[in-house]
Amino acid sequence: MVRAWLQAAPLALVVAAFLVVPIATLAVVSVWDYTEYDLIPDFVLTNYADVFGSWVTYATYASTVRFAALTWLVTLAIGFWIAYFLAFHVRSKTWQMVLFLVCTIPFLTSNVIRSISWIPVLGRNGLVNSALLHLRVIDQPLEFLLFSDFSTVLSYVHLYALFMVVPIFNTMMRIDRALIEAAVDAGASGWQVVRDVVIPLSKPGIAIGSIFVVTLVMGDFSTVRLMSGGQSASVGLMISNQLAYLQYPAAAANAMVLLAVVLAIVAGMMRVVDIRKEL
């Protein structure tokens, strides 16, 4: 056991120093007082009172939860079918590997670049508008394509779809093919196989993917800033704005609330599906 401890020690030290202690610091600072230029160690609940007393908080959470829900629905729909295609339609192992890599590679490049890459596509003079104008589908450029809720959700889906594809693909690859053959032999249609065999057995993957996507969107602030053109709010953006004014305790209180909300959502999802069996 001593040897195992020594082997686990580097990991334990890193997460203690750069995760546990920093989050504990947030908790402590969230009850501190502050002035325009200084932090004052104290025990006050004014920061939390400010968070819960302001309608802006509720509106911002509503907006963030809406983004998370929309992104979740779209990535789930796309992720499920892409994983299904890779797991069941592609029969050669080599092709499966190649196509999986084709999906994965863009996710190993910069998120900021991938967000701004939508600007020449969706802008007023972008590819989509030019094409639609050229085809005379529309008379004037569509304004909602860029710097809107639409482009924000589109960008989230673009950034995070893989986090849904990989876990679902992973669980689908573990489904015993004999079960599907049995269902087909028993007279199930293709759709019934998907609904009654594949979906129930893919649930753990769906749950893991959902946790990833929802937590990533709930904590985001850069994508919403880049892609909504300052039109939309998000909790992350609200926190980073408070930081710009050096209101650290206020930001810390907001951060603790966000942490509680995110952990509650994750706990809720774990209740629906027991993912511990998967790990």
Binding site: V21, P22, I23, T215
Partner: peptide, 24 residues
């Protein structure tokens, strides 16, 4: 569980926590 939490906790909170810790 702590390691898994590291994946789930929004990045901006980790960043803010480390920044504040170093400041203090």
């Amino acid at each position: 569980y702590v390691v898994v939490a590291s994946l789930i906790i929004p990045s901006i909170l980790v960043s803010l926590g480390i920044g504040l810790l170093f400041r203090i």
